[in-house]
């Protein structure tokens, strides 16, 4: 098996390496990917069309909004899949084999440090979500950081302590609400007579010009993404760490 794997890997690697010679030089501004007119349009026209200085956020939430919406649905589906694979609902169905019982002792240093850190982490996550138009960041990154703060609560104390803030049904509600916020922006645009997720028409329901409507709708969409990512990251962690029983964490 190992020699077979080695042979196939070497053949594949040799094929890929022989193609490297045809690639453009690293950092060549005139390479096909960089001189393609779509990329050029995204660089030069994004600010004029959407008023967002961060081109990545603008392309992510506006030009490729359909793609991003269904990436969010993929994350939601992954969370649902993990629950359906792993979650154990009957309490007597716990498998004892390999499940070590950790005695939980409150540690003064860890507890105090996390108590001080978690508000700062959550504030930073909100900043990353809200300031994604002007700096690196956005819904995905901010959502992951916000979910990591709940994971930190569960790590530093116990899974039950984190469940007081985010019970299981609330987590799944938040994940669904995130996608509904995202799809809601698209549907409002559709009911106002434009295409799905064409935010410029939303100036009819916002006190803004069409360009500013695109700017502000992107923020709303990022908030929806952040809801889903936060909820699903915490849901995946809490299922993996308790083997689906939701009883005790690490």
């Amino acid at each position: 098996m190992k020699s077979l794997a080695l042979i196939s890997v070497v053949i594949t690697g040799w094929l890929l390496l022989s193609a490297v010679g045809d690639f453009p030089y690293w950092g060549d501004p005139n390479s096909p990917a960089n001189s393609y007119r779509l990329s050029q349009h995204f660089v030069t026209e994004t600010f004029h069309e959407t008023a967002v200085p961060n081109m990545v956020t603008a392309v992510l939430a506006d030009y490729r909004g359909y793609d991003t919406m269904f990436e969010t649905v993929v994350i939601f589906t992954a969370g649902i899949a993990i629950i359906s694979i792993l979650r154990v609902f009957r309490s007597d169905d716990q498998v004892a084999s390999g499940q070590t019982v950790y005695e939980k002792r409150p540690d003064l240093i860890v507890d105090t440090t996390c108590r001080l850190m978690i508000p700062i982490i959550q504030l930073f996550a909100l900043y990353v979500i809200a300031h994604g138009h002007h700096s690196p960041g956005g819904g995905f990154q901010g959502g992951v950081i916000f979910g990591a703060s709940f994971i930190l609560i569960a790590l530093s104390r116990d899974l039950q302590a984190a469940h007081k803030w985010v019970p299981e049904n609330r987590v799944l509600n938040l994940a669904g609400i995130g996608i509904l916020i995202y799809a809601g922006f698209g549907l409002v645009a559709m009911f106002l007579g434009q295409n799905f997720l064409d935010y410029a028409i939303l100036h009819k329901v916002m006190p803004a010009t069409p360009i500013e409507a695109r700017y502000h709708s992107m923020l709303g969409v990022e908030i929806g993404v952040a809801f889903t990512v936060t909820a699903i990251m915490y849901s995946i962690y809490s299922n993996l760490v308790s083997k689906g029983t939701m009883k005790e964490g690490l």
């Binding site: 793609d67 990436e71 993929v74 699903i232 993996l240």
Partner: peptide, 13 residues
């Protein structure tokens, strides 16, 4: 960017 976040979800599955 989206591929990374979807990648961690598939890793979780």
């Amino acid at each position: 960017l989206t591929a990374i976040v979807v990648g961690v979800s598939t890793l979780g599955v």
